[in-house]
Structure formats: C-alpha cells, structure tokens
Computed example of a mutant assay.
Amino acid sequence: MFVALGLALVAAGFLWRGRVLRPLSAKRAQAAVIRDRSRNLLRSADMAIAEARRRAARGEPAIVTVEDVTTVACRHYGHVVVEREEAAAALRQRYEAANCRVDCMTDAFN
C-alpha cells in the first residue's frame, strides 16, 4: 500500500513538474506583457535598421521608416496592432544607440 501511494505521488509530481504553484497576479502579468512588447519593438527596430543597411547601395544612406519597424513587429513577433508612436519611439531609441546619424535616415523624428 505504501509503495502504491509512493508511486502515485511520484506520478503526480511528474505530471505537475514545471507548473506554477500559485497563479500570477494580474498586475505582474500585465507588467510582463508590457516589458515583452517594449523589448520586441526594440528588436524590431534593430532588425529594420540592419535590413535597411543591407538594402542600401554603397555610398547611399540607409532609409529606415517607422513602417519598416511596424512590419517587422507584425511579421516576426505577431503584433497585430502597433501604434505609430510606439514604433517611432523604439526606432528613435535604437537609431541613437546604433549611431545611425552617420549612414541612415529616418522619419521617426517627424
């Protein structure tokens, strides 16, 4: 009987392994969603800048638009709706961080 009880506990532990013991609070879940969205938009801006640099001919400036960031966010991260202001803010931040003033142009500052 003890062996059967032990096997049942081991089986239950095996099935429940990795699950959260307490549910996430709504506030923490929302904060995680906001963090992930912000991080995904920054990555989308990086990818759009890299793609624009690859497309640019030698000696020409790379042209990165807010629409490029929106397209990458929709295509790679599945964001259905990306506000222009959010995408522009992410592009401005990554534009400054990547020192793009030397070889890029953007409409994010309009």
Rank of each mutant, 00 (worst) to 15 (best):
A73T: 03
L24M: 07
D36R: 15
R75G: 09
C104P: 04
Y77K: 01
D103R: 01
L41N: 02
A87L: 09
R53S: 02
V102D: 12
V20E: 14
L21S: 07
R58F: 10
I34D: 07
A11E: 00
M105Y: 13
G18T: 00
R17T: 08
G13Q: 06
A52F: 03
C74F: 12
Y77S: 02
G6T: 14
T106D: 05
E67G: 07
A89N: 11
A32C: 00
C104K: 00
E96H: 12
A87N: 08
R39N: 07
E51V: 08
R39C: 02
H79W: 15
R19M: 02
N99M: 07
V64W: 00
R55G: 02
R54D: 10
R43G: 09
C104F: 00
R84F: 07
N99D: 13
I63A: 09
L5P: 06
C74S: 14
R37W: 03
V81E: 13
R37S: 01
V81L: 09
W16S: 10
A31Q: 12
G78P: 01
H79D: 08
A8C: 04
V33L: 05
F14M: 07
A11H: 03
V66N: 01
H76Y: 11
R53K: 11
I63R: 15
V20M: 13
A26K: 04
T71L: 14
Q93H: 12
M105T: 15
A97V: 08
G78H: 01
T71R: 15
D103P: 03
V82Y: 02
A97W: 04
A12K: 02
P23Q: 10
R39Q: 10
A108M: 03
A50H: 05
G59H: 02
R53W: 04
R101S: 06
V69L: 10
A48W: 04
R28L: 08
A26V: 07
R58V: 14
Q93A: 14
L42T: 10
R22L: 12
L9V: 09
R75E: 11
L15V: 10
N99Q: 10
V81I: 11
R55L: 11
A57Y: 11
R17W: 13
A98D: 09
R39Y: 05
R53C: 07
I63V: 14
A62Y: 03
A48T: 02
Q30L: 06
M105I: 15
G13H: 04
A32R: 14
P23D: 10
V81R: 13
D46E: 15
D68Y: 03
R22A: 13
L7V: 12
N99S: 08
L91Q: 05
D46M: 13
L7R: 07
A32G: 06
Q30E: 09
E51A: 15
D68M: 10
L7F: 04
L91G: 05
T70Y: 04
A50M: 14
R75M: 12
A32V: 07
A11P: 00
C74H: 14
L21E: 12
D68A: 12
E83Y: 12
V66G: 05
L5H: 11
L5R: 15
A11N: 03
R19V: 00
V82R: 04
G59N: 01
A90S: 06
S44F: 08
R28M: 04
R43Q: 14
N110K: 11
R43Y: 07
L41S: 02
R35T: 09
